[in-house]
Design a binder for these strands. Structure first.
Lengths: 129, 129
DNA sequence: TGACACGCCTCGGAATCCGATGTATACTCT
DNA sequence: AGAGTATACATCGGATTCCGAGGCGTGTCA
């Protein structure tokens, strides 16, 4: 299914921020962690990952620093900034709004205008069965 | 928030198919219906909508036909095909898989490798609180 | 020595969205 | 009659994003 590729668009920075929100990590590790958490449903390709991290750094949402390990290996470890944390929260809210809107459209036909605009949506996952 | 724009990518055909799955409708009406169902969270711009419908028609997932109404107005009414229905189901499954994967990554830190690969994910929406 | 995982990076093609723009008809209000 | 608005179709080009392909270098193990 190649459509996954398009679905991912726009979520890359959000995903990276989410991982970094749980602790500093280097690029390669971020990719691994996202695959792990999503059970391999999501994979970060290198051509996507590094440019995305550079962009996040340019925007001040994360900061990267080269670190040398015991074995002499060097890698660039990223940390989320306060601005990044705020941005992540905003992005998460945006995602939730978006996802529930999609679910509502996919879900079906008749939903009359609800009384409360902020009414929590019903997230459904079950197939048609 | 402009990020919505990128989030939408790849979902346009799915949304259109979902609406047409509930009955034939013309382009303009599809746009209106998606806005209604999503409570205006999602809007189809014309520059997106019509090319998307043409593509779906090319792929045989929908068929369009010019119809004249009582008032003499002409509009192109689209119907979903059996292939379109099958495609919609596939797309819906893809979306569910994708969305739950995102939720898992956003959700948090420690989820050890689950025993069952097909285990239903936990969709969480609440902020850190 | 070779193979492999780790780890960083850039470039160009492909796909997608949408603002701007254009055309045309029906209805409503003054 | 004229103006304004909603309906209804369509295309084009700029912007954005993903990622395959390619490149560079290091540590580990057989």
């Amino acid at each position: 299914m190649d459509s996954e590729r398009e679905l991912l668009k726009g979520n890359t920075p959000t995903l990276a921020l989410a991982v970094l929100n749980d602790g500093p990590l280097h690029g390669y590790g971020i990719a691994r962690e996202i695959e792990r958490r999503s059970d391999n449903a999501l994979r970060f390709k290198e051509g996507t990952l590094y440019p995305a991290l550079h962009a996040l750094e340019r925007e001040g949402l994360i900061v990267g620093e080269w670190e040398r390990e015991g074995n002499g290996r060097e890698r660039k470890v990223y940390r989320i900034t306060p601005a990044g944390i705020a941005d992540l929260e905003s992005r998460t809210r945006t995602w939730n709004t978006f996802a529930s809107a999609i679910e509502r459209v996919l879900g079906g036909h008749n939903n009359g205008t609800p009384a409360l605009p902020g009414t929590p949506p019903n997230l459904r996952t079950e197939p048609t069965s």
